[in-house]
Structure formats: structure tokens, C-alpha cells
């Protein structure tokens, strides 16, 4: 009943039989229990000129999971998210949605496959109404002759926007108020509500709490849990390790373009995560650490 109750204590099966923190590059939580991951990446590489941003990343996200993606600046988090959201194309490797290999050339194609992204800046148009923001790029037109002109079915969109926000228990007041006139928390809620409304497969959240105060970070965490309760898994990218530790079922650590650890918060402390992020956990002999 209480959505914000962390679920990592619920013993979700022996997904990581050989324990947390396996080393070097091949494992981002590859399914052991046979269930097909909603989204899976295999051996993704990406370079920008001579800089190797991703060196073969594997990652699975399964139904009903909140997966944290952490790593230091430059570890490849944003690159990976941009590839999954369709903004960047990988140089190598495959992306599987429901077990089928897919490619997307744009964020539109990723969205068509049910992959929605909540961007750090929320990506809302402040001068548009709440319903227009939710339907932006996927506007509904009326039936009949006016359809040719792209005549908007404003009423239908307002109605379903209301229903969408209602379904995620998000209340904005009027869906025709301008997004720019709402509070930070409400704007966040619209962005999440939009992702939930369209994201049938997985929702990527890129630093959703970076710009928020402590109390609102808490609320976003609760919202993430409630989204996940509705069945759609969430890939949660954040620097806020205590929060990641609290709300995620699994934490995947990127280090220099590779997945170096796949931890379960129930079994690992925040300090352990930090050790993997800084590389200290991998041999510990790195100078200066």
C-alpha cells in the first residue's frame, strides 16, 4: 500500500547467484532466471573520435525493476542513456527490446518502441498547456474532413491527459494550465506522467533529481517506485547514491565505459557502490585512492 517502501528486501529471486560486484565488462545483470528482459543491451560500444566512451556494455532491465545506473563523470552514463533513448547511435553491439534486436535512428523511433525518457531538464514547453506537453509530437486530430489540416482534438487530448495523470496519481489541477506556471514538483510530475503515459516498455530517467531540493528528491523517489509498481521498469541514472541505494532494486556501476559491478542494495552499502565508482574496489592499488 505504501508506494515508497523500498522493495529490495523482498527477495526477488536469485538473479545474481555469484553475488554482487563481478568484475570487468561482461555483466550488467544478464538474466539468469530465464525471463526475457524488457530491454537489454549487449556489447554496446561508442567512441567520439579517439575517445572510447563505451567499451562493450551489457545491461538488462526486467519487468517491475528499478535499475540504478551510476558512475563517475565520464564513465559513460549519459552516452548509454543517449543511445537507449535514440539520440545517439552506437558503433557496435545490439539493443534488444523484448528479446528482439532493434535499432533506432532517432529518439522518435525509440519512443515508438515504448522507450520513454525523463530528461534532467524535463523537456517541457513552458508556454504550452499540460495536455499539449503530454501529447507533443503525438497530437490527436479530429476525425472527419478537418483531419486533413491536422485539426487538433483538444478536448480528447485534455481528457486523456487528465486520465493519464490520474492513473499515476498525479494531480496538476487543470490540464489546461501552462506548464511554465506550475511549481518545480508539478513540472517534474508532468514529465514523469508523460513518460508513464507513453512508455510501455521502459522509462529512462536521466538525473531526475539533480536540480531538486532534498524533500523533492524524496518525492521523485517515491514516484519512481510507484511507476515501477505499475509494471514499467525504470532505468534510474543519478549521482545521488543514497537515493539510488534506497529506491533501486539493482545498481549497475559504469567505470571507464564498462560495467564493473552489478550490486543489490540489500547486500551492498553505499560505500561499496562508491568504491566501485571510483575504481577502488577493483584491486585497490590505484594511486591516490
Amino acid at each position: 500500500m505504501v508506494a515508497d517502501e523500498p522493495r529490495f528486501g523482498d527477495g526477488g529471486g536469485p538473479r545474481d547467484a555469484d553475488g554482487p560486484g563481478r568484475q570487468a565488462g561482461t555483466d550488467g545483470g544478464v538474466a539468469v532466471d530465464g525471463e526475457v528482459p524488457v530491454i537489454a543491451v549487449r556489447g554496446i560500444t561508442k567512441h567520439f573520435g579517439s575517445i572510447q566512451a563505451l567499451r562493450g556494455v551489457d545491461l538488462d532491465v526486467r519487468r517491475g525493476e528499478v535499475v540504478g545506473l551510476v558512475g563517475d563523470n565520464g564513465a559513460g552514463k549519459s552516452t548509454l542513456v543517449n543511445i537507449l533513448s535514440g539520440a545517439l547511435q552506437p558503433n557496435g553491439g545490439t539493443i534488444l527490446v523484448d528479446g528482439k534486436a532493434v535499432t533506432f535512428g532517432s529518439s522518435l523511433e525509440a519512443r515508438r518502441l515504448g522507450i520513454e525518457t525523463v530528461y534532467q531538464d524535463l523537456s517541457l514547453a513552458p508556454d504550452l498547456s499540460v495536455w499539449a506537453n503530454i501529447f507533443l509530437g503525438r497530437e490527436e486530430t479530429v476525425k472527419g474532413p478537418l483531419r486533413v489540416f491536422g485539426w487538433l482534438d483538444r478536448r480528447a487530448m485534455a481528457r486523456s491527459a487528465e486520465a493519464d495523470l490520474e492513473r499515476t496519481r498525479i494531480r496538476i489541477g487543470s490540464v489546461s494550465s501552462l506548464a511554465g506556471r506550475l511549481s518545480g514538483g508539478q513540472r517534474q510530475a508532468i514529465a514523469v506522467g508523460r513518460a508513464v503515459a507513453w512508455g510501455s516498455k521502459v522509462i529512462l530517467m536521466d538525473e531526475p533529481t539533480a536540480a531538486l531540493g532534498v524533500e523533492q528528491q524524496e518525492r521523485v523517489g517515491q514516484l519512481v517506485r510507484s511507476v515501477c509498481e505499475n509494471g514499467v521498469p525504470v532505468l534510474f541514472i543519478s549521482h545521488n547514491l543514497p537515493q539510488v541505494h534506497k529506491i533501486c532494486d539493482r545498481v549497475v556501476v559504469l567505470f571507464q565505459g564498462r560495467v564493473v559491478a552489478n550490486l543489490r542494495p540489500a547486500e551492498s552499502s553505499v560505500d561499496e557502490i562508491v568504491a566501485w565508482i571510483t575504481g577502488a574496489a577493483m584491486g585497490g592499488a590505484r594511486s591516490g585512492l
Binding site: V2, R169, Q188, Q216, R219, Q222, L223, S226
Partner: peptide, 8 residues
């Protein structure tokens, strides 16, 4: 039923 943040 889910309890949701009051900011929302």
C-alpha cells in the same frame, strides 16, 4: 492505492 508525494 499509492500514496503520492504532496508536491504532485
Amino acid at each position: 492505492p499509492l500514496r503520492l508525494p504532496s508536491a504532485l
